[in-house]
Amino acid sequence: MQKRSLSTDGHMLGVLLVIASALMFSLSGVLTKAIAADVWTIVCWRGLIGGAAIAAYVAWRQRGRPLGPAFRLGPRGWVLAIVGSLSSLAFIYSFKLTYVANVAVIYATAPFMAAGLGWWIMRESVHARTFIAGGFSLLGVAIVVAGGLGTFSVGGDMMAVVMTFGNALYMVLIRRFCDVPVVWAGGMSALQLFFVSWLVTDPLAVSAQDAALLAAFGLSFAVANVLWTEGTRLIPAAQSGLFGSAETPFAIILAWLLLAELPPVASFAGGSMVLAAVFGHAAIDARRKHEFG
């Protein structure tokens, strides 16, 4: 009985950690919009603070053991880090150029893109329901992007598509490169952007308010990664995907409450289709995982 109770407590903790990580990740859009500095300055600060915090976390996890293996990326790890850096850059650009809701909705299709890439690159089997849900969500994305044609937001929408593809590829490469220290690869992807952006911008030419927001952005990025890493250790992957999907509605609600940002009708229509596909598919996966163990 005590063993079962401990298992239940661990599961609940995992759920709470994944939901908390989704909330922290959802702050990205609001913080990017609130910061007046340019994109390169944002990724510079976010990369330095987030990368350093992740490095400290990796070192803490390795306490009492040799640090070398945890920080040794190798060629595959560097590929992961580069893909992560490019995706992060597109991520920040997309928030600067379009509505937070549009980015959040488009990014919600990443699991379906990852399933398609996994089938193509690794010949992983994909359920028919995943193809159906993926097609439905991509139709929703098409409606969102079409709603921005001829307006300022279309460039940001396309950047969000590029970012989502990059993150989907990152998900697949994590499974392909199972020997790579994934958390540190994420930290190095952030630090890479810090070093590159330091060469193309003056990161110190920011206001005190922006400096505080940039510091918060870097810390939220690191905390979100740590919470997600710890949470996914405690619950099944299907449930992690389901509760992690809460990032999308969190981001939309925060943008509405804190920025008074209301996207056009097309964004709501397409977004509703994407969210229905994502949550419906995730709920079915979680239920089947529970039924069949």
Score class of each variant (00 low, 15 high):
Tyr57Val: 02
Ala128Asn: 11
Met113His: 11
Trp60Cys: 11
Ala37Gly: 08
Cys44Leu: 13
Ala52His: 00
Ile106Thr: 01
Leu117Arg: 06
Ala128Gln: 15
Cys44Gly: 03
Leu73Gln: 07
Ala108Tyr: 08
Ala114Arg: 01
Ile82Trp: 10
Ala70Asp: 01
Gly50Glu: 09
Gly84Ser: 15
Leu31Trp: 09
Lys96His: 14
Phe91Pro: 01
Gln62Met: 11
Gly68Met: 12
Ser85Trp: 02
Pro111Gly: 03
Ala34Thr: 13
Ala108Leu: 08
Ala101Trp: 10
Leu89Ala: 09
Asp38Thr: 09
Gly51Ile: 12
Trp45Asp: 07
Val58Phe: 02
Thr109Arg: 08
Gly68Asp: 14
Leu48Phe: 11
Ala34Pro: 02
Gly47Asp: 07
Val105Leu: 15
Gly47Lys: 03
Ala115Asn: 06
Pro66Ser: 13
Phe25Tyr: 15
Leu27Met: 15
Asn102Val: 07
Phe95Tyr: 15
Trp40Val: 05
Trp45Met: 07
Pro69Glu: 07
Met122Trp: 09
Gly51Val: 09
Trp78Pro: 00
Arg123Ile: 07
Arg63Trp: 12
Val105Cys: 02
Gly84Asp: 08
Gly50Leu: 10
Arg65Gly: 07
Thr109His: 07
Ala90Lys: 00
Arg46Cys: 06
Leu80Lys: 01
Trp60His: 06
Val39Gln: 10
Ser88Asp: 11
Met113Asp: 04
Gly84Glu: 05
Trp120Val: 12
Leu80Pro: 04
Ala55Trp: 13
Met113Cys: 05
Val105Arg: 00
Ser85Ala: 15
Gly116Asn: 06
Ile35Gly: 00
Tyr107Asp: 07
Trp119Leu: 10
Val83Gln: 08
Leu48Glu: 00
Val83Trp: 10
Gly29Ile: 05
Phe95Ile: 02
Phe95Met: 08
Gly74Pro: 03
Trp120Ser: 12
Ser125Gln: 15
Thr109Asn: 02
Arg46Leu: 11
Ala52Gln: 05
Tyr99Asn: 03
Ser87Asn: 10
Ser85Asn: 08
Trp40Asn: 14
Arg61Ala: 11
Pro75Trp: 14
Arg123Asp: 14
Met122Tyr: 12
Ala108Ser: 12
Ala128Met: 13
Tyr99Gly: 01
Ser87Arg: 05
Ile82Arg: 01
Ser87Cys: 12
Trp60Asn: 03
Ala81Ile: 03
Ser125Cys: 13
Leu73Asn: 06
Ile35Ala: 01
Tyr107His: 09
Pro66Tyr: 15
Arg76His: 14
Leu67Cys: 10
Ala36Met: 13
Phe112Ser: 00
Phe95Cys: 04
Val43Asn: 01
Met24Val: 09
Arg76Met: 14
Gly116Ile: 03
Tyr107Gly: 06
Gly116Pro: 04
Ile35Met: 05
Ile54Met: 14
Trp60Ile: 03
Trp45His: 11
Ala70Gln: 04
Pro69Ile: 12
Lys33Pro: 00
Tyr107Ser: 09
Val43Thr: 09
Gly84Thr: 04
Met113Gly: 05
Phe95Ser: 00
Ile121Ala: 14
Thr32Val: 15
Asp38Phe: 05
Leu31Arg: 09
Ile82Val: 15
Ser87Lys: 08
Val100Ser: 05
Gly68Gln: 10
Gly51His: 02
Tyr93Lys: 05
Pro69Leu: 12
Leu117Asp: 05
Val43Glu: 03
Gly116Phe: 14
Val83Leu: 13
Leu80Gly: 04
Arg76Val: 03
Val39Leu: 12
Pro69Val: 09
Val100Ile: 11
Thr32Gln: 10
Arg76Cys: 11
Thr109Leu: 12
Ile42Gly: 00
Tyr57Lys: 03
